[in-house]
Computed example of a mutant assay.
Amino acid sequence: MNMQLCKYNTFRRHARMFIEPAIVSYWQKSQEGMLQKLHAEEKVIVGGDMRADSPGHSAKFGSYTMMDLKNNKVVDLQLVQSNEVGGSYHMELEGLKRSLELLKERGVTLDCIVTDRHLQIQKFLRESSITQFFDVWHIEKGISKQLEKAAKKKDCEKLRGWVKSIRNHIYWTAATSTTGPERVAKWTSILNHVQDIHSHDDPLFPKCLHPLRIAQYQWKAAGTPAFHKLETILSTKRILKAVAKLSPHHQTSSLESFHAVILRFAPKNVVFPFLGMLCRLYLAALHYNENAERAQATTSTGKPLYKLQFPKARKGECRAKPVKTDPTFCYVANLMDLIFDQVFVDPAPFTQELLKIPIPEDLCSQYERPDREEVISGYATRFNLAAV
């Protein structure tokens, strides 16, 4: 087609000299403005979670995101390489420590932090005297999976009819409670409710709040295999401790949405260098922050727009999802102006800031590199091995 295309080496040279310094500088200025606003607030509620570049415990990169849950903005991103902390399992804790240290340096006062149930995170926050809440969806997802699995067993089929009610009950418990013991009291009341018993011994929640006459459900009798399995799932020590720390208002669903945005900038099936990965994370954060508060789209008559979805997890249940207005890309135009007006003119100050970012050694640097010819001579496949 006789199209003019630059080679990869040319792109990398331009990225190293102009694009990456501009992205880092633009993100740092944007982040500094957000941190100054958080410093002026008395109490800040943040959410934290890590995204790995591959599943399992073989990830190379882990990006820890800290988000202000009141205005739905990404305030910090920390990229951790697995050889910095001795393995991919420890990357999430290291990312959290770095983010908290940055917020402390900027004088941000935390009210609480909402996370998942990562054990290392729980221990660190407990020892640091930082109030922690759990995201409701992460706990509900685990309980729902256990109930669905139990409903496939003999004499437990009727549990499937209660899964949706129990799922709604855990969200209601989190939203209507103010203390941990109250959450536990409301949560455990479901075990009486499924037996058609609506008065409870716990004074924190003495009776159900629904009308006395309700629709006929498949009530469970104590002593049956189905009720025993339900009680085992809902009242374990680990579940009760988690329910006591359910987040009452703010959740980490926005963090999950941001992680989906990262896939558009840094797909998991593509390998990037450390600095290239970091800049792609910054671009994803800039895009997300600019479009975090998009309004719902409407028709020409002002009627809100929705689209119908069939989520895989809901197994055929149709749901309505609001349609947002089209995203904007003002950050792209600002970055282009920065590159052409300042970075091209004098790249030295920008590259100096880029050099301050500590870049860890490659994963292969910890191994001794053998002789090339020896490795090639020892190459063999299962199809051309010599006959024995």
Rank of each mutant, 00 (worst) to 15 (best):
D111G: 06
L79K: 04
E42H: 09
A348Y: 06
Y217P: 02
H118G: 08
L385Y: 06
Y379H: 07
A285I: 04
S63L: 14
V243Y: 07
T10M: 06
E84G: 04
R319P: 00
D196V: 00
T328I: 11
R13K: 11
A295Y: 00
A313D: 12
I339M: 05
F340I: 06
A313Y: 05
G316F: 15
A285N: 03
D341T: 11
S257C: 12
Q4N: 11
A285C: 05
R264L: 14
K73Q: 13
L69D: 05
I139A: 13
W219I: 02
G316N: 14
V194N: 05
A244V: 03
K97T: 04
K324Y: 03
L354M: 13
Q36N: 14
L246Q: 07
P273N: 10
F265C: 02
P206M: 01
W27E: 09
Y282G: 02
R314K: 11
S257Y: 14
H118K: 06
K315G: 01
V194D: 07
Y282H: 13
G95S: 10
Y331S: 02
K241D: 13
A175N: 08
R106Y: 15
P248T: 08
Q122D: 04
T178R: 15
K229E: 15
L96D: 10
S247A: 14
Y171K: 13
L35V: 13
R280E: 00
K324C: 00
K186R: 14
G87M: 02
L110K: 00
D371T: 13
P181L: 08
T381H: 01
H228C: 13
M50C: 04
K307N: 01
T173W: 09
I143W: 12
I190N: 00
Q195G: 04
A226V: 12
Q352N: 06
S253H: 03
K237I: 05
N291E: 01
R238Y: 15
V261G: 02
I262P: 02
R294G: 00
Q296K: 00
Q366A: 07
L363R: 11
A266C: 13
E148M: 10
S365V: 05
I170D: 05
F124R: 10
S365F: 08
I143G: 08
E231D: 14
E374L: 13
P206T: 00
E94H: 14
V375P: 04
K152N: 09
Q78S: 12
K237M: 10
E290K: 00
S63T: 07
R294L: 12
Q28M: 13
I357V: 14
S235D: 12
S25D: 10
I376Q: 07
E127V: 09
I139E: 09
L275M: 13
R319D: 03
G62E: 01
Q78F: 02
K60R: 10
Y8T: 07
T109I: 11
P248F: 04
A297C: 00
L119D: 11
L240E: 10
N9K: 11
L308E: 07
A284Q: 08
N384S: 12
